[in-house]
């Protein structure tokens, strides 16, 4: 084997490495974009949930003005919230929803109110959308997290400064939401 062969072999190896680097880097970039898209899906679903819950709170307050349970938590949704903050906002919405259900239990006329019934159906659908958005986001995060810890992709991820992403957690209350008795 002469020097020429060694140089050609090295160039081929280098070329393969560069192509692999570009392909893997693009894959990671795509994964990040997909996570961002999924996160915006969560934002949309959270905003919808917030809107419907706000309407429900208004209806509940008009029926039970003097109840302690009508002291609902103030939920703030703003742009640029971290996943942790979104999780917290969602948990506060869960608590508000729990309170709405407690008040509704004591007011049969509220449960039979057409507006309230429509909002209950809406919240069930909104919950399904939120669950879908959460699952899309978590599926993408899971794939991304697996990629950035697996060698040799992990070395490129480290180079690009990519770190593990947080999951959007689901809790029991949200699952119960879609099982409401209408």
């Amino acid at each position: 084997m002469n020097l020429m062969h060694i140089v050609v072999a090295l160039i081929v190896i280098l070329l393969i490495f560069v192509l692999w680097y570009i392909a893997t880097s693009n894959k990671l970039n795509k994964s990040v974009v997909k996570i961002d898209e999924a996160l915006s899906g969560i934002d949309v679903a959270l905003t919808k949930r917030y809107d419907v819950l706000t309407k429900m709170i208004e209806v509940v307050k008009s029926f039970a003005k003097h109840e302690k349970e009508t002291l609902f938590k103030v939920v703030e949704l703003r742009s640029g919230m971290s996943v942790k903050e979104k999780n917290e906002a969602n948990q506060m919405m869960d608590e508000n929803f729990k309170k709405i259900n407690i008040v509704a239990e004591s007011y049969p006329e509220l449960k039979s109110n057409e507006n309230y019934k429509t909002l209950q159906q809406s919240i069930a659908d909104v919950e399904e959308h939120l669950q879908a958005a959460r699952r899309v986001y978590n599926a993408n995060v899971s794939l991304y997290n697996q990629m950035i810890v697996s060698f040799p992709t992990s070395s490129i991820a480290k180079n690009k400064g990519l770190v593990k992403k947080e999951f959007f957690e689901a809790d029991k209350i949200k699952r119960e939401d879609v099982k409401m008795n209408l």
Partner: peptide, 12 residues
């Protein structure tokens, strides 16, 4: 498939 479950059908 529980297709007659109308939980979501009348959502606003």
């Amino acid at each position: 498939l529980d297709l007659n479950n109308n939980l979501f059908r009348k959502g606003v």
